[in-house]
Amino acid sequence: MSEATPVKKGKGTVFVRMEICKGCSFCIDFCPTHCIEFSREFNAKGYHFPVLPRPEDCTGCDLCGLYCPDFAIYGVKFKDIEKRRQAAAPEPLVPAQP
């Protein structure tokens, strides 16, 4: 059954720096697709940080990043990551020379 169900892939994702989050819930309450929620864990300061339980709904619009007063979260579109991947691919890796 799980084979037949098409898995809906999201258009983007969010990155959270959980150690500087203060749990104000701006990103959770104003996410346009309501795909962010509080975690059940705490960070070092005792705040619940945001997680992405429904990644298939995330569009990577970065509105959470614009709201976040603690600069702890931002969203990226997979399209942009793909662009970066393609841009980075032709460049050969240069080993660090002393």
Partner: peptide
């Protein structure tokens, strides 16, 4: 419950992603 943090350090490091406000 889904307790997996969304932070994906590998993806972030691999593509040099950074919060746009950080610079």
């Amino acid at each position: 419950m889904n307790e997996l943090p969304s932070f994906d350090a590998n993806l972030e490091q691999e593509f040099g992603l950074i919060n746009p406000v950080m610079p």
